[in-house]
Amino acid sequence: MSKAVRYRRFGGPEVLEVQEIPEPHAAADEVRVRVTAAGLNPMDWQITTQPDMAARFGITLPAGFGSDFAGVVDEVGAHATGFAIGDRVYGAAIGRSVAEFVLVKTPAETLWPTPERVSDEVAGVLPVSGLTASAALAAIGLHAGDTVLIGGAAGGVGVFAVQLAKLAGARVLGTASEGTFEFLRQLGAEPVAYGPGLADRVRALAPQGITAATDLFGRDAAETALQLGVAPDRISVVADGPAPPPGVHTAGALDAGPGALERITDAIRSGDISVPIAATFPVERIRQAVTTQAERHVHGKIVVTL
C-alpha cells in the first residue's frame, strides 16, 4: 500500500484525505517516480472546489490532488525510454502529484531531469508556475526597455514572472498587498498596492507610462493597463481566470515555449533567479498546507513533503 491525497466530493480543504491505496507499478511504457516534494498552485485547490474546472482537465470523482512534484525514478517499464532507476526528476501530473508514487508515460513531455544543485523542494514547485510565468511574458513579447505591470506579483507565478522580466531587461511594477512590498523589492520589483485607484498609483510610479502588462490574479492589472493606453496585444492574463478584455492574450503553462524550464533552472543554478519557499508541510498536514496557500498571503511557494 502507499499514501495519496484524494477527495470524494468537491469542496474546500476539508474534503482532502490522506488515503492508503494499492501501490501503483509502472506499465511497459511508464516510469514510476517516488515523490519527495510536491509544490502547490492555486489551480490545485480551484479544481477541488470547481467541478467545471475539474472537467476541463478531465478529472472526475474520486480524484487525486496536486500538479507539481519532484522525486526519484524507482521503476522503469520494459519499453520506457529516457530515464533510469535512480534518476532525480521533476514534473507535472495534474490531479495526482501529492502521492508517494506518480506514474509517467514515456517519451515524457512533462518530466525533466532535476539539475545538480537544485533541491527537490525547489524543483517540485517549478513546472506550473515557471511555465505559466514564461508563457505570460512571451505572449506580450517582453523585451529590454519595457516597463511592465505585473498583477499578483508576490504570488507563486508572480515570483517567477518578476525575475524573468528583470532578466529580460524590463522595469517591473508589481501589484501586491503592502505587507509584501519589501519581499517584492528583494526580487527586483517596484511594488504598488492593488485595488481602487491603481491607475493613479501606477502613473505616480511611472509618469512616462507602462508599455506592457501581465495579470496573474484577477483582471485588475489588465484593465488598468488598458486604461493607461497599453495596446491589448501587449497585455496577457492567466488562462484560468475570468474572460479577458477583447484583444488581450490568455496564457497558461501549456503555452510555454520549448526549453522554458531549462532556462529557468539554469538561472536558478547561476543565482539569477531565487525560488522563495514560504512554508513546507508534511503530507499529513495537507489541509493546513492548502488553507495557507489559498489565503494568498504567503511570500513564495508552499511545498508538501512525502
Score class of each variant (00 low, 15 high):
D44Q: 08
W45K: 07
W45L: 00
T48W: 00
T48I: 06
T49Q: 15
T49D: 12
D52F: 10
M53W: 03
M53I: 15
A54P: 14
A55Y: 03
R56D: 05
I59N: 09
T60P: 00
P62Y: 12
P62E: 02
P62G: 11
P62H: 10
A63Q: 11
G64K: 04
G64F: 13
A70P: 13
A70R: 00
V73R: 01
V73E: 11
V73D: 02
V73G: 03
D74S: 03
E75Q: 14
E75G: 05
A78C: 02
A78S: 15
H79T: 12
H79P: 00
A80M: 10
A80T: 11
A84M: 00
A84I: 00
G86V: 06
D87I: 03
G91V: 08
A92V: 13
A93E: 11
A93Y: 08
I94P: 14
G95K: 02
G95C: 08
R96E: 13
S97H: 00
V98F: 12
A99P: 11
A99T: 08
A99H: 04
A99I: 06
E100H: 14
V102E: 02
L103D: 07
V104K: 08
T106N: 12
A108W: 02
A108N: 00
A108S: 14
E109V: 05
T110G: 05
L111R: 06
L111M: 14
W112C: 00
W112F: 15
W112N: 06
T114H: 05
P115H: 02
P115K: 03
P115V: 03
R117A: 14
R117K: 09
V118Q: 04
V118I: 15
S119Y: 07
D120N: 12
E121V: 13
V122D: 04
A123T: 08
A123Q: 03
G124H: 08
G124P: 11
V125G: 00
V125S: 10
V125P: 09
L126P: 13
L126I: 15
L126G: 05
V128W: 04
G130R: 10
T132G: 04
T132F: 10
A133G: 09
S134H: 14
S134Y: 10
S134P: 01
A136E: 05
A136I: 04
A138F: 06
A138W: 08
A138P: 00
A139N: 08
A139D: 01
L142N: 07
H143P: 07
G145K: 10
D146I: 08
D146H: 12
T147V: 15
T147R: 13
T147Y: 08
T147A: 12
V148F: 01
V148S: 03
L149N: 07
I150M: 08
I150T: 10
I150N: 08
I150L: 07
G152C: 10
A153W: 04
G155M: 06
G156N: 10
G158H: 05
V159H: 11
V162Y: 09
V162E: 07
Q163F: 07
Q163K: 09
Q163L: 09
L164Y: 01
A165S: 09
K166L: 11
L167M: 14
L167Q: 13
A168R: 15
A168H: 04
G169I: 07
